[in-house]
Write a protein that binds this DNA or RNA. Structure first.
Lengths: 185, 185, 185, 185
DNA sequence: TATGAATGAGCGTTCATTCAT
DNA sequence: CATGAATGAACGCTCATTCAT
């Protein structure tokens, strides 16, 4: 699995053959199929892993009384997510690059994943609007904007020549600032 | 080409075989190779078409005296781009979905394409900052945010069950509002 | 035909495509098939041409009374043949290089051609033996030896970096000397 | 390999398809590529085999004191080579028939092979001349003559209706006689 | 007579998957 | 548990040949 993570991340799904996999893992062809039903299956498993890791990282903003200020919570959450993604860079790279095209099943899965994030963001926006913190807007479209900006920021962090040097905190804060204030003075 | 546009758009590059292509076009194998050097070549041609169409659509905001207000120009430009993309939906779908993984050459091309957009956005942000219209921020990161949000919005328009019904104007305006004001009241 | 001669000679039968042919001749695809039944057919025609030219060159040694000395006649004939081959270098190259493997029909043709030469040589040897000029030997095998040595000598003349500079007369005489005297002192 | 030897020998390189090969060998397409990198590769391997076998057979004539008479040694060597070729008839057939035209690489290989033989023969001739055994002649051309005669003799042995019946010893002796004495009485 | 667009059988090669050991 | 030899469908591509104009 570790090997597959690296290979899929580097060469993509189509660019990685079972041969690459078993050679890098120093196992026999048959052994691979002993543990994974198919090439597709290990890819799935890999991404599920990331989904679970991410799901564990995302936390709802607590707006209850006595909670820390929402903005501070937001900063913390974004930091957490960015760090998780950077720690699982290989997997995250796959998620963001192999966006689509594996097959219909995978496409649906991906849509689902982003759909859930979108729903989360939407409800946050709606809550914010109710609380008078967020301006009125089409929550769905706004959620999409946030998601898009976030995806791009993360992707950017991987594309940089030396990802390990990217200041994820700065990237996160810039994203939050952009999301909340936009660009106007 | 029309057939290829549709097929690549629906099933992706890897998911579309020469067989699919020639059957859908009702031509013989050899005929395909009479007009296109390779599978890769037709894909390239297809995307170049879109690149050119897009390049012709994008217009710099005129900040000179006597020009229309920048915001209005921005609205018009975004509308134009959105409409162009919707009119070339199949191609745009390819551009946004076949994110990467065809081959190194194509990856570079894609990076180039987005790089140029990013540069455009960056210089716009910097100009805006100089004019005092735009708050100080990391222009590069901000440009990425805009790009990401825009990509997502466009993608969203294609993913909708019935893309022809998406109100591109509304999507565009929401994107601009998000970009300029953010979400805060 | 001229074009085909050159191309077949340079790139061989399999290495030359109809495309090469028509492009070099600046004619259309259909025009080619108007004049030649197939790729095989033009190749055949080309070699027939050489066969005919060669047949016209070969002359039996006249051993009748009043004729020039056989050795002198031999020298003249060999010179003639070598010069003919050098003048039709392209064709000869094909004959010697594309030795076999086009198809069964062509193989038979080639066998025939060399068979006829062998027969010619055999009868010459037998005549020579009867006249007491030639030592007793297996005429067929000896004919083969001569044929082989001759083929190699001609081939050599084409393989040389600059065939036009090869002294065909010297080559011919060396071949005759070898054939008649062998190598012993 | 055995199957390939037969097929290449019978139908030539171009005339033999992977399909022919795998059908004759009763293996699956993939199995072929498990053992050979390509069609070219198996052909190469096959001929290398013969090259090695032949190289092991060729022996320099020992002219030192106490050695057997050169002529006897020559007879033995030629016998050895002829027998080796007859034992590896299929391979030898390929070598002699697929003269050229597979590709540039193979052409070079072939040229090399014959070049080395020629060099061997040349040095033998020169040694012979120094020892006063061989008449003065152009060693290179003479070597070519021998090579040509030998090739033809071997080819002849394969072309005969029943090659297994050819008296290789007789062929070899005739070749030697021809080479040394020529045809004159 | 000349054209060249169209054809399609055939090629060499790849690679995810199976299964007897 | 582990192996790796064997599989064969599928792929992208070539090229000699045909035929309507």
């Amino acid at each position: 699995m570790e090997v597959a993570r690296q290979l899929f991340s580097q060469k993509g799904y189509h660019g990685t053959s079972i041969d690459d996999l078993i050679e890098a893992a120093s196992i026999a062809r048959g052994t691979f199929y002993l543990y994974f039903e198919s090439k597709r299956a290990i890819f799935d498993e890999l991404l599920n892993e990331l989904f679970i890791t991410l799901a564990a990282t995302v936390r709802r903003i607590d707006v209850g009384p006595g909670a820390k200020p929402p903005l501070e919570q937001l900063n913390v959450t974004v930091d957490l997510i960015f760090n998780t993604l950077m720690e699982n860079r290989a997997l995250a790279r796959i998620l963001l690059r192999e966006a689509v095209g594996i097959d219909a099943d995978f496409d649906r899965k991906l849509l689902d994943f982003y759909g859930r994030i979108e729903a989360l963001l939407m409800s946050a926006i709606e809550t914010g609007t109710e609380m008078g913190l967020v301006r009125t807007c089409d929550a769905k479209l706004a959620a999409r904007c946030i998601l898009g900006a976030a995806k791009e920021m993360v992707t950017y962090s991987f594309v940089e020549n030396d990802p390990s040097r990217v200041d994820t905190q700065k990237v996160g804060h810039e994203l939050i600032a952009f999301t909340l204030q936009g660009l106007f003075t």
